[in-house]
Simulated scan of single mutants.
Amino acid sequence: MGQVTVRYFAGARAAAGVHEEKVQLPADSTVQDALAALERRHGDELARVLRAASFLVDGVAVRDRSAALPDGIGLDVLPPFAGG
């Protein structure tokens, strides 16, 4: 079992209702596993945001949702931002 610290920004924070939370995941979990757990926890509003969001794993952009999440790592959820 491992723990991931999830930080939400902008619209993701509004959808989750929290700025940061800890998520317990089985060993060898991936970004997708974490996202599935977050969708179960927070429901459809966050699920919509997660489908369009970008992610940072310990500050590094990750596009591959099958990327591993080692115990104690941070996962930042960045929704699409408007502006130019």
Rank of each mutant, 00 (worst) to 15 (best):
G74Y: 03
H42R: 12
A34G: 00
A47E: 03
D28Q: 15
L35G: 05
Q32D: 15
A52E: 14
R7S: 13
D58Q: 13
R48I: 07
V77E: 02
L38D: 01
F81S: 01
E45W: 03
E45L: 05
F9C: 06
A27H: 03
L69A: 13
G59P: 06
I73D: 09
E21G: 04
G84P: 12
G17K: 15
R7W: 02
V31S: 10
L69H: 11
P80Y: 07
G74H: 08
A12H: 03
D64K: 11
D76K: 04
A37N: 05
Y8S: 05
D71R: 06
D58M: 06
P70C: 05
A47Y: 05
L56T: 07
G83H: 11
G17Y: 10
S66E: 11
L69S: 11
E20M: 06
G43E: 05
Q24F: 01
D44V: 14
D64G: 03
D44N: 05
P26C: 07
G83D: 12
S54W: 09
H19Q: 09
V77A: 03
A61W: 14
A53D: 00
A14C: 01
R7M: 13
A16M: 00
G74N: 10
L46D: 11
L69K: 07
L78N: 00
E20I: 10
S66L: 10
L38H: 01
A10L: 04
G74C: 09
D58G: 06
S29F: 09
Q3E: 15
T30A: 03
P80R: 06
L75R: 01
V57A: 12
V6S: 07
R40V: 06
A61L: 11
Q32N: 10
A68D: 15
H42L: 04
V49Q: 09
V6Q: 04
P79E: 08
G43T: 01
S54K: 11
